[in-house]
Each structure stands twice: as C-alpha cells, then as structure tokens.
Design a protein around this nucleic acid. Sequence first.
DNA 1: TCTGGGGTCCTAGGACCC
DNA 2: TCTGGGGTCCTAGGACCC
Length: 430
Amino acid sequence: MKEMYPKKGRVILHVDMNSFYASVEMAYDQELKGKPLAIAGNPEERRGIIVTCSYEARKFGVRTTMPLWEAKKLCPDLIIKKPNFDRYRSASAAMFDLLRQYTELVEPVSIDEGYLDITDCSDIGSPMQIAESIQKRILDQLDLPCSIGVAPNKFLAKTASDMKKPLGITVLRKRDIPSVLWPLEVGQMHGVGSKTADKLNSIGIETIGELAKANDIQLKGLLGINGIRLRDRANGLDNRRVDPESVYDFKSIGNSTTLPRDISNQQELLKVLDKLSEQVAARMKRKEAVATNISVTIRFKDRKTITRSHKLENPVSRQDDIAAAAKTLFLKHWNGDSVRLLGITGTDLLDADKAVKQLDLFSYEHDARKEPLFNTMSLLREKYGKNIIESAGSQVKKPHLNENKSAGTSFNKDFLQERRPNDETDKKEK
DNA sequence: TCTGGGGTCCTAGGACCC
DNA sequence: TCTGGGGTCCTAGGACCC
C-alpha cells in the first residue's frame, strides 16, 4: 500500500575533518600551526608521497599523492612528518565519541568523516545550531577543524561539506540544487572519477545539471546501473540511510607494501609474503574474523598489477595458513618479472566463533597500546591548565577513547572496526 | 627520482546446475 | 540442421574513494 503522506524529510549531517592528519599533528605540536606541513612516507623506501598537507602547504600547490620531491620543489620550507596512525586513530575515536553525544545515529565512513542523522534531534536545537555546536566542540576540545554539510540526504550532505573548507558549514536544500549543484562539472561529483567524467563528456554531458536531465537508456548503456544512480544523485535523490552498524560489516582485511626496490629474487619475495601474512593474521585475530578466500596482489616493475585469488575449503586466520595460501597463489601466477609491490588480502570473511573448529584458549590477544592515546583531557589540561571537557560537557556520555590497539601503520577503518558484541548474524548473510 | 595503502562496489565470463 | 532460460559460484579486473 502506498503511503498516504509524504515521508518526513530527514536532516543529515556530513562531518568532514579538514586535512586531518596534518591537523592532528598541529594539535600535538602547536609550533606547527600556521606552517606548511605535509604528512609523507619515506622516499628512500619509495613511499615518499604526500598523504595529507596543511592549508598553508596547499597555497604552494602541494597536493595529496604528490611525490615528496615535487612538493619540496614547490614549497622549499615544507615541514615533513611521518604518519603516526595510532595518533590519528585515537583522535578519530575521540571525534566520533563526541558526535555520538548528539545522536546514536552516527555512521563513520572513514577515519576522518562520518554522517549523522539528526532528524529527531530537534529538542537539542535547529540543524544549524547542532552543526555549529559540533564544529565548535571539535575545535575547542580536540583542537581540530572540520567542515559540515547539512542536507536532506547523504549525497547532498557530503557535497555540501565539501563546499566550504576549512571550518565551513554549508546547508544544501532540495531547492538549492538547480542553482548550486547543477552548474558544477560532473567530475566534481562524488562517485564520478576521471574515467566516468571522460565517458560522460564523450556524450556531451559536462555539468551535473546535464547529467540530471540525461537519457536513461543512454546512461545505462554507458555506465550500467551506476549511470542511473548517478543521475538520481544529480537530481538530489538518495535514500541511503545512516547506518551506525555498517562499520562492523567489513568485507576484507588486507595488507600490501611497496618494496624499497624492485625484487625478482624468489626467496626475498616469499619472505615479504611471510611478513604480510603476519600482519593480516594479526588484524584478523583482533577483529575475530576468518577468511575463506585469499588473494595476492602483484605489482610489477612497470606498475602493471594483477590480483589472483583462491577460494578455500576451510577458513583461515593463522599466519602460517595465510602464508601458505598466498605463496601457492604467488608461485602459480608469478612470471619471474621484477616486483614493485606485494599484497595479501583475506576476503569472504566469517565470524571466527562461527567458523572455529576447536576451542583455542590462547587465541585472545591482549595488545597494549604503545603510546598514549589522543587524550582530550590530558591534552587540554596540558595546554590550558584546566578541564575543558567537564566545563563544556553537559551531555550524558563522556568522550571515552576507543580501546583500539592496532600497532599497524595502515590507513584503514581499524580505528572502529571492532567486532560488534553479541552479533548473532553471520556476516555473509548480511 | 613519479605515482602509498586501506578499502568498497560493480561487471563479466565460464562452470555448473536444474 | 541443435542448442532455452534461469540461477549461483568463482575468478579477474576496473573504477572510485579517503
């Protein structure tokens, strides 16, 4: 039966941290504030690309993924910091804890951004007041800047948060779509990368407005069902809900590494696979997951990349099992050419307790943190000599820091991807 | 001196089954 | 002188995002 009344409009916020890693480093070290700062890996190990940079660095043209030497050429005074992922993860956890003081309907989408559904939060204040409060408290309590989009759905909220940086708040209503969204180039749209933009341009679609009015059949022929979805989004249609649980539905766990130099020696490469399987095994253990599919990624000297996967009869999670599967795959498909990067990923994940065949009393790993968390209270006491949290907080829940303990140095969702307690459902069935 | 590492989702072909 | 029409599983690869 059709609903007789239109569904109540939703109010969705998208909170997007501004140059997150660089901002966290600045929160730790005030000396860095106002200076061109970049987070980058080690060029000696061929990991020397810009991961994030401060707005001061951007003024010089420094951009994410730019090789370090190029960034230095543009900005000779650029300050370089190695990434400190533990630090970013705990800052992230503190940030999401703060968001959850407004509503439980918080969906993290990556380490530095998330959605909130504040439709039923009118008792707290207007959407704009809530956005302002969030932005101010993240700045005051964590010393981190963010931009916020306010809109009736995820797509528009995401688009809006992108419009004013840093420290912007942008409202994007349905009625603003023709004047604000449609004049933008299609390539600007979330979900449209360079390939898709080229394809759309090839049929004369240059702006989001043109995409919004494009022909169904033509779009489907060009882009498949994604074409239809993009056209809907261009019209401001998006009914994906804010799902706080989605963070637990991880589908793969993988680690990869660019080798310090190209390697063609088999023994050396197998050693790398040992190391990678150790990392994957450790993360699978923490997340209490097992994999029934193992895949290996090989990037050759010329950057040509292949992935080869194998479905397993029995799920694996131990290092030696993962390594064995990975090595078999590798040896079967490697043509002997020089290798630039190797990766191992476990997919088709199951809950460990569902898959386990025998009780392993020693499987629980207690992994203590190696360095202090991004602790808002101690940080601010240090800085201001007073307790900002208590003075600012009238909310029930105190920000509590995630107990996440990964010592890994990966950019991923580990900061929240703990296994959901009491989860009865098999991930595969979800 | 080019181009990291973590992911998700989608497509497409072949095998296999009913 | 004949080969339909689903469906699922597996594998490989592409596009995109942060």
